[in-house]
Computed example of a mutant assay.
Amino acid sequence: MPDLDFPYHFSGLGRTATTDRDDHIRDLIQQVLFTAPGERVMRPDFGAGLLSLVFEPNSTTLAAATSDDACCGRCEEHAALRVDVTYGAARPHDAQRELHRSGRRAVKFHCCDLRRLDVLRLSGTANAIDFLEVLDKGGPPAAPRQQTLFVRLLRPGFALTPDNIRITGGERITRIGIVWCAPANALPPQAEPGLVATVDDLARTLVVRTDSSGDFSTYTLSIVASSGSSNPPAGFDPRLSSIDFSFKVEGLGHLRLQLPAWSADRRPEARY
């Protein structure tokens, strides 16, 4: 059965215009993205309001508000669409980001030199960071959101302490402390039950608990020899011992904060 075309209009035959399924889905997405909250009287929370951001100054806040994670979340919420987004090759000096929206949401930040990583994987002996994943809503209820990092290393057998982990960057929140870190197969007693239930390689995964979830800007996690050193520990590749990432893997909540408030008691101002 054909779907109604958007915006509503009549076809050349004088009947209500219809369209195919692919175009109908495109119409649904456009309605969600370009409708301003409050524009629909009976559904004041409908819409992402992207048009109101067109002339906003460029910033990390704007980038987070217009991220694919946020926009896909709105489409899933209002248009009942399941959106799968996968980023391809990483840009130079930037982290590759993969987002999978089937079941638990997972965002993995990969290293910036995949070719060097492949060489180490096949013929090297040094350890290195393979990717980093921020645990958000997929964690156990007792675990604080966006404060658990799964750092996948190339090789098991590492012995790292909080003094070996340094997180730098940020704009509004620049000091990120390390509460504890441990291999996923040897968690400390304060770790929440079920914290690593979704980790598929416990021996190669370093679990890092931070004291803050940071802001919406980019951070860098580095594995260092000591708290006063900028060099990696012995046995770690110097170029692949740090990785860029963002704590804010769930952009939907932030997008809602950026939108104008609306309630049923609010009435539009009458101007004559």
Rank of each mutant, 00 (worst) to 15 (best):
I29K: 15
L13A: 10
F236A: 09
I165K: 04
R15D: 00
R267I: 14
D84W: 00
K248A: 15
G169K: 03
S102V: 09
D215S: 10
D22S: 13
R97E: 15
G139P: 05
P57A: 12
G73R: 08
P260D: 08
S217F: 03
P92D: 05
Y272I: 00
S230Q: 15
T86K: 09
T86S: 13
S241L: 13
D237R: 07
A159E: 04
P140Y: 01
T205A: 07
P188G: 07
T168G: 04
E171R: 04
R74N: 11
L117V: 02
A89I: 10
L240F: 15
L4S: 12
R105F: 00
Y272E: 14
G194E: 00
H100D: 13
S212E: 06
A182W: 09
A203R: 03
L135P: 06
L160D: 01
A191Q: 02
W180I: 02
D20F: 11
A17M: 03
I25P: 08
S212A: 13
Q96S: 13
Q146G: 09
S102Q: 14
G49N: 08
V54R: 15
I25Q: 14
R43L: 12
A80I: 04
R155H: 05
F150E: 03
D84I: 00
E98I: 11
D237I: 06
M1G: 08
S123R: 11
L187D: 01
V208L: 10
V85P: 00
V224M: 13
T19F: 06
P183I: 02
A225N: 07
R105Q: 12
V199W: 01
T125K: 12
S212L: 04
S212C: 06
T210N: 07
Q31P: 00
G169E: 05
L132P: 04
S59F: 07
G12S: 11
F6Q: 13
M1H: 04
F46E: 05
T86N: 10
R115P: 00
V196Y: 06
L154Y: 03
H254Y: 14
T86P: 00
G177P: 08
F46M: 11
S227W: 06
T16V: 11
S226A: 12
G88S: 10
Y87V: 01
E76K: 13
L4K: 00
V119T: 03
C71H: 10
L62M: 14
V32S: 07
D45K: 12
A79Y: 07
S11D: 13
